[in-house]
Design a protein around this nucleic acid. Sequence first.
DNA 1: CTGAAAGCGCTTACAG
DNA 2: CTGAAAGCGCTTACAG
Lengths: 334, 334
Amino acid sequence: MKITIKDIAEISGVSTTTVSQILNNKGQRFSEETKRRVMKAVEENDYNPDYFAKNMINRESKTVGMIVPDVTDLFFSKVIEGVEAYLTKKDYMILLCNSNHSNEMEKNYIKQLLNRSVAGVILASPNAMELETSLKSSPYILIDRGINTRVEGNLLVKEYEGSYESVQYLIDAGHKKIGMLTNESGYYEMTDRYRAYVQCLKDNKLIYHGEYIEDGPVTIEGGYEAAKRLLERTDITALCCGNDQMAIGTYRAAYELGLKIPEDLSVIGFDDLEISSYLNPPLTTVAQPAFEIGYTAATYLFQSINSPEQKIPNRTFETEFIVRGSTTTVDKKK
Amino acid sequence: MKITIKDIAEISGVSTTTVSQILNNKGQRFSEETKRRVMKAVEENDYNPDYFAKNMINRESKTVGMIVPDVTDLFFSKVIEGVEAYLTKKDYMILLCNSNHSNEMEKNYIKQLLNRSVAGVILASPNAMELETSLKSSPYILIDRGINTRVEGNLLVKEYEGSYESVQYLIDAGHKKIGMLTNESGYYEMTDRYRAYVQCLKDNKLIYHGEYIEDGPVTIEGGYEAAKRLLERTDITALCCGNDQMAIGTYRAAYELGLKIPEDLSVIGFDDLEISSYLNPPLTTVAQPAFEIGYTAATYLFQSINSPEQKIPNRTFETEFIVRGSTTTVDKKK
DNA sequence: CTGAAAGCGCTTACAG
DNA sequence: CTGAAAGCGCTTACAG
């Protein structure tokens, strides 16, 4: 049988009140001698207050729910790492939920998490939600690319600026036929990245070609399929991929079609995954700080849990354009 | 204020006993009319029994702890996905812990998890542990490559056979100077893979060269560094990498040293990550079923939780040798 | 067919 | 300086 506070009280010859107070650092009033006796009994019996009994009173579950679209996604796993790194320092633990990009799953998970009285939730989601109804009763942070409008707790990335910079770079390098891999299917509408692409072409007086755009899932395979369709159809000399994973897929598509990167096709990603600098050739990409995003989300959530009256700050993360070997200037090429 | 069973009882004009019994499907004895009234009150008020109060009695936390060395590792994130996929069907949730390969962190996490009365734990670890003391009080499954000897619940992979097959393949292709990237530094001693390498050379009457072996962390960067050292030092024509991530690092090292894969160097990995078939060239590797391993671990753990008296089965997973573009026969080469 | 009462393992006013 | 007692929100023998 598990050892209880009663046992400790008996062993040290005091009341449960005394044990409880001492254990919760409210025991100033007790004599040193008593404290010592109690602590000794606690140590020796490896006593730990029952988590459930304690929580029934304190309501401090020290648990945070985290929902991500895909744990195996290299971007999100890095975000998780950031969240974990912060929360573990605070003795919090994470209930991890894999939503498989499904809005319905997300709702289920939120319900379950709230049932378990989590202290807060971090929701990484591509979906717009009726947050009022589902999450209202708990502190939360959204990692959602700004899809849901709020006044506080917005964690944003300069997607537009980052994307714009990459397109401008290609144009400056002489590219005129620039394609884009995007995702419009409800999820991950990379609207900002796409808008930046359109605007940048316009600012440079280049014509926008609808057929230079291709749509697909934001995965390696999705990128592969989309790039294949796009590259078979057009003679673009450069391609902005929705993210690094799609860029990896693009490498394969190009290879199969006999296109050399960067000689025949310049490729740019978005994210800067660890793997990206190891690709062959190393991927030129727009870096966003995944770990830091997670870490910040956790920090803000923690603050919000402990000072609910305080507003959660907004924060916009900078991107960094990193030129590596997958892009080149266009010269003899048409 | 949160709504309690008392409120529901009051609203439907019965006792809390009645509400509790009906909600827990022990309400056969109550009249249909009563049941209906209670259920209606429950629905209308969106009542959910308090998680902590309920658990204080039932001790069914429906929560499993999962500890992995690195959430961003592509192999482990796939294992997590498998675990999650099974447990979510059973209405269980996962407390995820990232141990950063540290044995000390693992122990801390185990303690914390047990404090929270998890129903069980899945520990993916490269470390040998004094399991008796730390985990004894809870059902658990180890994903540890068989480092800790147990009579039941061993989830093993045919590492030896898989590795042997890959080395034999290289030898059959004419390679004589075959290197290996391994990890001996306490973690992930890939002993089986290494042993298979040694034995296979021997069986084929090839001399074992100590300088053909290099050691490093099981990451992309680790593989890069190790491969660089090894390739600068020797003139091997083929390299067995400890895992796919190390193989990815090897690609970069080879590239920087001006070695073409597979013309100058055949490369073989271990894992078959999703990304591996998209590398340039696609990676020849020994596939192991990461998702299935996780899924099976969760299945066994669940069984063990619900039938503690039953023995947990052992299971050995097959590997599959997948030939892709990173290997070739050695011909004109010396 | 139904409910009063005890109990799970804690914490916290309150009294001394 | 210390402890008896009430209470958190449930479940479950037990009595009727």
